[in-house]
C-alpha cells in the first residue's frame, strides 16, 4: 500500500512538471511574455527593468527555472485589474467555488445514485423509463442555458429564489461558507442544482448501468439462492460492486465540477474563481490566467491521486495485486 502511494506520488510529480512546462511554453514562449507580465501602460524604462528583472533575456531553460522558482514561492505575478498578487486573488475566490462544487456533488450523488439504482433494478417500469429519459435530457441540456431558464422561472417569474451572488456567509470551524445561513442556502440552491444537473445524469446512468450489469451476474443469483432478501442482495452485494466505478467517477467529477463552475458562476454571478477567470480572459489579465491554470491543474492532479488511492482501498483485487507488485 505504501509502495503504491509512493509510486503514485512520483507519477503525480511528473505530471505536475510536465503541466508546468506546457503552461510555461503556452503562455511564455508562444505568447509574448512582456505583454503577459508587464502592464501595457508601463513606459520603456519600466519595460527594460522588468525584462531584466524577469530574466527574459536569459535562455529558455533558465527562464523556466525562474518561473518554477516563482511558482514555488507563490509568486505568479500581479493582477493588472485588481493590483494584487494573482495567486492571492485566486485563493480568495477558491472557497466560493469549492462550496458550490461540493454542494453540487452532494446533490448529484444523493439524488443520482438512488434514481439510477432503481432504474437499473426495474428497467422495464415506466418510472425507470422516465428516469432514463430525464437523464438523457440532463446530459443534453446545455448547463448555461438551463441556468438562464432557472433564473427566468425561479427568480424572474416566480421570485422565489435569488439569482445572483452568494448571500450571507458565516464562519464555521474557520471556514467561511454560505451553506450555513438560510439566505446563503437560498443563494446556493439554484447554482448548485444547475451545476449538479449534468453530473446527476452521469451518476444516475452509471448507477443504472452498474446495477443492470451486476444483476445479471452469477454472484447475484447465487446470493439469491442463499435465500438473502432482495434488499440485502441489492444494498450489499450489488451496491459494493457498483461503488467502485462510482467512486472513481464521482471523484474525478469533483474536479470536473470545479472546472464547469466557470459556466454556472458566470450565469449566476457567483463570486468564485470561475467567474474570475472569464473576467480575466476578457480583460487580458494574464497573470491571473496563469495563476488560475496552475492552481486548477495542481488541484486536478491531486484529486486524481486521491481517487486512485481511494479506489485501491475499495477494490480488494487492486489493493492486493498492488501490494504484491
Amino acid at each position: 500500500m505504501t509502495v503504491f502511494i509512493i509510486r503514485r506520488l512520483m507519477q503525480t510529480a511528473i505530471v505536475l512538471v510536465v503541466m508546468s512546462m506546457i503552461v510555461f511554453v503556452g503562455v511564455f514562449a508562444i505568447g509574448d511574455p512582456t505583454a503577459i507580465l508587464i502592464s501595457a501602460d508601463s513606459d520603456m524604462i519600466e519595460r527594460e527593468r522588468a525584462i531584466a528583472a524577469l530574466g527574459l533575456d536569459k535562455p529558455l531553460w533558465e527562464q523556466y527555472l525562474y518561473f518554477v522558482g516563482g511558482a514555488f514561492r507563490g509568486d505568479l505575478g500581479k493582477s493588472f485589474v485588481f493590483n494584487m498578487p494573482a495567486l492571492q486573488l485566486i485563493l480568495q475566490r477558491l472557497p466560493a467555488t469549492l462550496e458550490l462544487a461540493f454542494a453540487a456533488l452532494v446533490i448529484a450523488i444523493f439524488v443520482g445514485v438512488p434514481l439510477g439504482m432503481y432504474a437499473g433494478y426495474r428497467p422495464e417500469s415506466p418510472v425507470s423509463k422516465a428516469i432514463m429519459a430525464g437523464s438523457i435530457l440532463g446530459f443534453s441540456l446545455p448547463t448555461f442555458w438551463v441556468g438562464l431558464m432557472m433564473i427566468m422561472v425561479f427568480a424572474v417569474q416566480l421570485g422565489w429564489l435569488p439569482s445572483t451572488g452568494r448571500g450571507h456567509t458565516a464562519t464555521v470551524f474557520g471556514v467561511t461558507t454560505s451553506l450555513v445561513t438560510p439566505d446563503g442556502l437560498a443563494h446556493v440552491l439554484l447554482p448548485a442544482v444547475n451545476l449538479a444537473l449534468l453530473k446527476l445524469s452521469l451518476v444516475c446512468r452509471l448507477a443504472r448501468a452498474g446495477m443492470r450489469e451486476n444483476m445479471l451476474m452469477d454472484y447475484v443469483k447465487f446470493a439469491r439462492a442463499k435465500g438473502l432478501t432482495a434488499r440485502r442482495v441489492v444494498m450489499v452485494h450489488v451496491f459494493k460492486n457498483i461503488l467502485i466505478p462510482l467512486v472513481t467517477v464521482t471523484g474525478l467529477e469533483l474536479g470536473n465540477l470545479i472546472a464547469f463552475s466557470v459556466v454556472t458562476e458566470t450565469v449566476f454571478a457567483w463570486p468564485g474563481m470561475g467567474k474570475l477567470i472569464i473576467d480575466s480572459i476578457n480583460n487580458l489579465d494574464r497573470p491571473v490566467i496563469v495563476a488560475y491554470l496552475l492552481v486548477t491543474v495542481s488541484m486536478f492532479v491531486f484529486i486524481n491521486l486521491a481517487v486512485d488511492i481511494l479506489y485501491s482501498v475499495l477494490d480488494p483485487r487492486v489493493r492486493l495485486s498492488e501490494a504484491k507488485g
Partner: peptide, 12 residues
C-alpha cells in the same frame, strides 16, 4: 453454479 469464478461476490 457452474462457474466458481463468478458465483462469489468479488468485493466481499
Amino acid at each position: 453454479f457452474q462457474d466458481p469464478m463468478m458465483t462469489l461476490n468479488p468485493v466481499l
